[in-house]
Amino acid sequence: MKKDIILAGVGGQGILTIATIIGTAALSEGLQLKQAEVHGMSQRGGDVQSHLRISSDPIASDLIAEASADMIISVEPMESLRYFNMLNTETGWLVSSMNPFKNISNYPVVEDILTEIWKLPRYVTLDADKIAKEQGTVKAANIVVLGAAVPFLGLKYSSFEDAIRKIFGRKGTYLVEVNLNALKAGYDFTQEKLAKSKV
């Protein structure tokens, strides 16, 4: 078992929370883990990325090699394009929110971005903001995206639930519930898409 995951987004969008949840889930299943984070300069509304690697065997590099990532998980559509070169062209999945974060004046046309993503052989794109709102708060959009990626991560669903309970537990039962629901909603979205593509 080995999964190399690129997490992408804009500073403040919660990609480190996604990383922590996946990391906690992976550790609970006895896996090894390396996670390279970006700190400093890039956190103020700039692009941020994290390389997350989980494996049953020892992991050497902190960085994922180009063209070898099993997944890109992006909480912002344009940011997912930035790491296209990292994705394994034979097996890699891209899961991205469709909700743009426009803090630059030359932000491309959203439809053009989606067209680029939809050229890939394996992707899931979803309106994470809308789904998160339906679960109670748009702030959980990052967890919706995580939920949509769960079917490809090779870990047990319950490990993610436990991780959310552990990480959000200190902040009260309401947040735990909202995030568990967000996870489930994202998860269901992908399962439906996969079921449809089978028929």
Partner: peptide, 8 residues
């Protein structure tokens, strides 16, 4: 079409 996103 990707654009840079410098910190602000």
């Amino acid at each position: 079409i990707l654009e840079g996103r410098p910190p602000l």
